[in-house]
Design a protein around this nucleic acid. Structure first.
Length: 294
DNA sequence: CCAATTTGACCGAA
DNA sequence: TTCGGTCAAATTGG
């Protein structure tokens, strides 16, 4: 009762903090998009702001956990009855996680394999992935591989991707991403590419954002899919339109097609970006910031 | 020894 | 029940 009140206050604060973090992401993105004002210093600054935002949020969640929420399984002082509920608590947590993952934005692209020869592996997208599964898919010639962000546990980064070799053209890979990276290990220093390389890669790359059916969520609230974290397809080094290593005329030289791709997943237009939130309710409760359980 | 991958088990959705 | 996605123990590789 008393507890509940302060709990909801905490939540409100937490939400504010996360909103702030979101604002920083916007700002960061704006810088990435604006070639004129782009500076790595600014980005680093924003990145560290983001880090501290998340750190604060994490700390808050931990505190709230200690105070108001069911205690962690580790404490052996619990009454026996809480032990029986421990299982269902974990179970519940798992289910919530599942739900959350499904609600994450999704987009896919087709990527050409390294045009070497035998080494048929899709290009590295600049993020660090850890394979966690492989499945034979009904009616598909090749198995589907499942990857999650390497930093899932250390940073609570929920990004995942699936890679599946195309049936008819085995040098093509369908890659489906789910969830934007919240870790900041993502963007390795982009290697300089020539103009031709960029153009070539742009041509061989199709990005389609799968706007999830809006009936899946109450449309009026949480605009999940307008959360405009730039998909890797925009930021990944091999497409490094924004890389300071590539010359400005690269960007200007490339036509609106690229801009379309860049905007594809932000299709809700930048004017809407400002009122976007994380779908915070879910984010707060389900987030995997409980990394110290692992 | 640690971190990544492999692979069968498990679980929820359809 | 089947299928697709994830987990986690066993295995591999550095």
């Amino acid at each position: 009762m008393e507890m509940e009140k302060s709990h909801s206050e905490d939540l409100r604060m937490l939400i504010d903090i996360l909103r702030q973090g979101n604002a920083h992401v916007m700002e960061l993105e704006a810088h990435l998009y604006n070639y004129e004002t782009f500076s790595s210093e600014t980005c680093l600054l924003l990145s560290s702001k983001l880090q501290s935002t998340f750190a604060t949020a994490i700390t808050m969640i931990k505190l709230m956990e200690q105070r108001g929420l069911p205690s962690l399984p580790s404490s052996s002082t619990d009454s026996p009855r809480s032990q029986s509920s421990e299982r269902s608590f974990k179970e519940q947590e798992r289910r919530e996680m599942c739900k959350k993952r499904k609600s994450l934005p999704r987009w896919s692209e087709q990527v050409k394999a390294c045009s070497g020869s035998a080494m048929e592996i899709p290009l590295d997208d600049g993020h660090s992935w850890r394979k966690y599964g492989q499945k034979d898919i009904l009616g598909a010639k090749f198995p589907r591989c499942y990857y999650r962000c390497t930093y899932r546990h250390s940073h609570g980064c929920l990004a995942t991707k699936q890679i599946q070799r195309s049936d008819n053209n085995s040098s093509l890979f369908d890659i489906t991403y789910r969830g934007a990276h919240t870790c900041n290990h993502g963007f390795q220093k982009p290697s300089p590419l020539t103009n031709e390389q960029i153009i070539h890669q742009n041509q061989s790359l199709k990005v389609k954002t799968e706007a999830l059916s809006s009936d899946e969520h109450k449309p009026e609230s949480s605009p999940y899919f307008s959360f405009p974290l730039t998909p890797k397809s925009c930021l990944k080094p091999e497409n490094n339109i924004f890389s300071s290593a590539s010359k400005p005329e690269n960007y200007e030289g490339l036509d609106s097609e690229i801009a379309d791709i860049i905007c594809a997943s932000n299709s809700t237009t930048s004017s809407e970006m400002l009122k976007i939130d994380f779908g915070v309710e879910q984010f707060v409760f389900d987030s995997e910031f409980s990394f110290d359980f692992y």
